[in-house]
Design a protein around this nucleic acid. Structure first.
Length: 672
DNA sequence: GCACCTCGAGTTCA
DNA sequence: CTCGAGGTGC
């Protein structure tokens, strides 16, 4: 047969196979879709590959058969983002927009005259980061906490709008964007799920996020997600000079990424507002879910000048359209008791659908909040979901009142134990919150138990099981957990030998605990994870901390009078000391923070001030501690050295006043 | 003494 | 996510 004819036939067949494979992968939700079995899928790809071997000229790196290779994974691998994935500050009104502009102008000073804004649509999906090397898609990751995400490369490869190979791409490229599902796809998916009695998804974001966290890429492929690029996090020089965010957009588009269809450069806030209002008109009919407009300072140089505060950049904000709201009736207001004894009022609603899920209660935070809202039981209220998740009472519709509404009275006694209610937690100060003052309050103790096991990471013991053990008399306090025996548990109804064994094994494994977690688990007033870390790092052993004076504790950075007093008092309370002793007796081992043998800085206390050139203050602190020294927040006569970087402040003056030795950064580095 | 940020604690639904 | 409150720097 004529070679050209064979080739033409192969081409046709390849086309057909690719279409079929794509159909299986992406269109399983179409009415008459056949059952997608691995057999069918594998035989199609096998045939395709064998033809391609013969006619390699038809290879197409972006074709459907190259989009799934991955087997289901056991778990995702962590990925450190080279460039932090930021979150944005929200703006809800025009006046907040002007405030933002004012702040930017102030920070930019004379440079502010050439200020342009870039507006683009904010899609509601899952933020992901894609890494390309010489044009090849090598890795994709979720945002995670911004610093560390999860490697979901296999799943992202199944998304058609993510190019696997880029033409004329720079050496290195990291693209940020949103993985999304179209509203239409969601409808189709829900139709099928409804028929098959599977769960209905509330919104496109949930499906996009949920799908990508699936361990099996084949499942992901069937969901038909899309990717919309919006930013370049890193690009090698060979891409040319990029000075503006709008140029990044142009480059991404040129490289073949799918992008949001509406964007604009605005010369001032008025133009930004016009853009926002313009899009608001078409938002509801838009194919993808959106929750606002991202506005950034276009010039990358100006972006750098503006920098970031905390987790959010100052040069970029998200204008959020008002969240979907609903009205409902407050049937009752209950009062919860937390582990600290704080009473939190909880509004119980007539169950109502808001933004895709049925809401039946919302926290009211405290009693001042109820006053502010003017809320009474029986009132009709407007609710929304903050961040589309947490229900919140926005306002009371006074005009809906019938006169039968009842004012909510703060309970005078703890609803759980009848204990006395106080408006203070320390003898010296009053607070907005109300507290149950009974140290033996069962609700308090139960919440504490839950907190304790969760910090100890004893996952087998959930709230229900803890409660059961308590009711059965197996435990009276948290320390009793560590002396439980298999025989205690397996005789209980609905517990078997196996589950009893699992629980005991888990507890045994968690008896060794770091000082940080131990301190956190104790539930000391004002001591959470971060403060516990500061304490652990500075004192290294439980004993050191227990013997420390108020001043010694107070001297630690980020710890002030309230926290040091609370700690000092905690370790002087007989009950607390007995509890710690009991824990140790029952086998809990608190691991010391390793003392580095060098210990060159043993017994020395440093105070850092100003900006260091060689390393951040955070790193310098770690170094000092790893060498046996301490780092304090303020200068006192106990301070060995004050390390002064550039622009040192009052701490330096203080050091001179107290005659404490001051080190330049250079001298400090020599010490190490 | 105030503005700012960070932390702690309690929280919803699927 | 929200609120209150503590810590820090000016």
């Amino acid at each position: 047969m004529d070679r050209a004819l064979v080739k033409e036939k192969a081409k046709q067949r390849i086309k057909k196979l690719r279409a079929e494979i794509a159909r299986l992968r992406y269109a399983y939700h179409v009415e008459d879709a056949p059952d997608v079995t691995d057999d069918v899928y594998d035989s199609l790809t096998r045939e395709l590959r064998s033809i391609l071997k013969e006619f390699p000229e038809f290879e197409d790196p972006n074709a459907s058969e190259n989009r799934v290779g991955g087997k289901p994974l056991d778990k995702f691998v962590k990925v450190h983002h080279k460039v932090k994935m930021l979150s944005l500050n929200d703006i809800f009104s025009e006046s907040e927009l002007y405030d933002w502009e004012k702040r930017i102008n102030k920070l930019l000073g004379s440079q502010a005259s050439k200020l342009n804004y870039f507006c683009e649509i904010k899609f509601d999906g899952l933020a992901v980061s894609l890494s390309y090397k010489r044009g090849e898609f090598i890795r994709g990751a979720t945002r995670g906490d911004g610093l560390v995400g999860e490697d979901i490369t296999q799943n992202l490869k199944t998304i058609k709008s993510i190019p696997l190979f880029l033409k004329n791409a720079p050496e290195i490229l990291e693209v940020r964007g949103e993985a999304v599902m179209s509203k239409k796809k969601l409808l189709e998916l829900n139709k099928i799920n409804e028929r098959e009695n599977k769960p209905i998804f509330a919104n496109t974001r949930n499906v996009a996020a949920g799908s990508l966290r699936q361990l099996d890429p084949k499942q992901v492929a069937q969901r038909g997600l899309d990717f919309l690029a919006y930013d370049i996090a890193e690009v090698s020089r060979d891409a040319g000079v990029i000075e503006r965010h709008s140029t990044e957009h142009a480059l991404l588009r040129k490289l073949g990424f799918e992008m949001g269809p509406k964007e604009a450069i605005c010369k001032n806030i008025e133009e930004v507002i016009a853009f926002i209002r313009e899009f608001e008109k078409v938002r509801a009919h838009f194919p993808f879910g959106t929750d606002g407009i991202v506005i950034s300072v276009d010039s990358l140089k100006q972006q750098e000048v503006l920098g970031a505060v905390g987790k959010a950049p100052r040069y970029m904000s998200a204008f959020k359209y008002p969240a979907e709201r609903a009205t409902t009736v407050v049937k009752n207001i209950l009062t919860n008791v937390g582990r600290t004894g704080v009473l939190t009022p909880l509004a119980i609603f007539e169950p109502t659908l808001v933004a895709g899920s049925t809401v039946s209660k919302a926290t009211l935070h405290n009693f001042d909040q109820i006053e502010r809202l003017g809320l009474r039981i029986g009132d009709t209220v407007v609710i929304e979901k903050a961040g589309d998740v947490i229900p919140k009472v926005v306002e009371v519709l006074i005009r809906m009142r019938t006169g039968k509404e009842k004012k909510f009275k703060m309970p005078e006694k703890c609803p759980e134990c009848g204990g006395k209610i106080e408006k203070r937690k320390l003898p010296t100060q009053t607070s907005v919150a109300h507290y149950c003052s009974n140290p033996k309050c069962p609700a308090k103790n139960e919440r504490f138990l839950e907190h304790f096991v969760s910090v100890f990471e004893i996952y087998e013991l959930g709230p229900k099981i803890l409660r059961r053990f308590k009711d059965e008399g197996l435990i009276t306090d948290a320390a009793d957990i560590f002396t439980l025996e298999k025989s205690d548990i397996e005789i209980l109804e609905r517990f078997g030998e196996k589950s009893a064994e699992n629980i005991i094994k888990e507890i045994e494994m968690k008896k060794k605990i770091s000082l940080l977690k131990f301190l956190w688990a104790l539930g000391i007033l004002h001591v959470g994870e971060e403060t516990a870390r500061d304490l652990a790092v500075n004192f290294r052993t439980l004993e050191n901390l227990m013997n420390a004076s108020i001043e010694e504790i107070n001297n630690i950075e980020n710890i002030g009078p309230a926290v040091s007093e609370s700690l000092y008092n905690f370790f002087r309370d007989k009950n607390n000391l007995n509890f710690i002793k009991k824990l140790e007796r029952n086998g809990v081992v608190v691991e010391k923070i390793e003392r580095v043998k060098a210990g060159k800085l043993q017994g020395m206390t440093f105070v850092l001030t100003g900006t260091l050139q060689e390393m951040s203050r955070e790193i310098a602190k770690d170094k000092i501690i790893s060498m046996g020294g301490k780092v304090a927040g303020s200068v006192s006569k106990n301070t060995s050295y004050v390390v002064a970087g550039t622009d040192a402040g009052s701490k330096l003056t203080n050091a001179q006043k107290l005659g404490v030795k001051v080190l330049s950064e250079e001298e400090f580095l020599k010490l190490l």
